[in-house]
Simulated scan of single mutants.
Amino acid sequence: GGRMGDVSAAIGQVGRAAGYGINADFGGHGVGRTMHEEPHVPNLGRPGTGLKLKTGLVVAIEPWFMAGGDDYVVDDDGWTIRTADGSLAAHAEHTVALTPDGPVVLTARD
């Protein structure tokens, strides 16, 4: 019964509670046969909104937390992303499958 906005809101709440900036322009994505498929998984959102989460959906959840605020720059190579103020940042990814028995974190070490 959850929605994508619930996931996005949780990412934002955790990051903001810890005092981090959040890259809201990039985020997670669907996982399938091509790279970065739909649906987009935003790093900020409102609970109860967005795509309804259903069995069979596989998504990569990719929070981007930045020590200095929300601003970032993209280098001339079009690929490298840096915090605008030069502070530290972290980007992580977990792939989650929604199964009939509940969510399974496919990238968990256990």
Rank of each mutant, 00 (worst) to 15 (best):
G27R: 09
G78M: 03
G27C: 08
L57V: 13
H40K: 10
V59L: 15
D6Q: 02
G50Y: 00
K52T: 05
V73F: 12
A24P: 03
T99I: 07
G102F: 00
W79N: 14
S8Y: 11
L88H: 05
T95H: 10
V31C: 07
I11V: 15
E62G: 14
R82F: 09
E93A: 15
T49F: 08
A108Q: 11
V74F: 11
G56L: 07
T95K: 12
A60S: 14
F65Q: 01
M4W: 06
A18S: 09
N23M: 08
R3P: 00
A17K: 07
H36R: 12
G5D: 00
M35C: 05
W79L: 14
D101R: 12
P100C: 03
Q13Y: 08
P47Q: 00
G15M: 06
T107F: 02
D70N: 12
A108F: 05
T34C: 07
S8K: 09
A92H: 05
A24H: 02
V14G: 02
G32R: 07
G2E: 14
T80L: 05
G69A: 12
Y72A: 02
A24N: 09
G86L: 05
Y72P: 01
A108R: 13
G5M: 00
V104I: 09
H36P: 02
A97Q: 14
A84P: 00
G28K: 06
W79S: 14
E93Y: 15
M35H: 05
K52N: 06
G68A: 11
V104Q: 14
A60K: 14
W79A: 10
V31Q: 05
H91D: 15
T83C: 08
D70I: 01
V7M: 08
D75Y: 03
S87I: 06
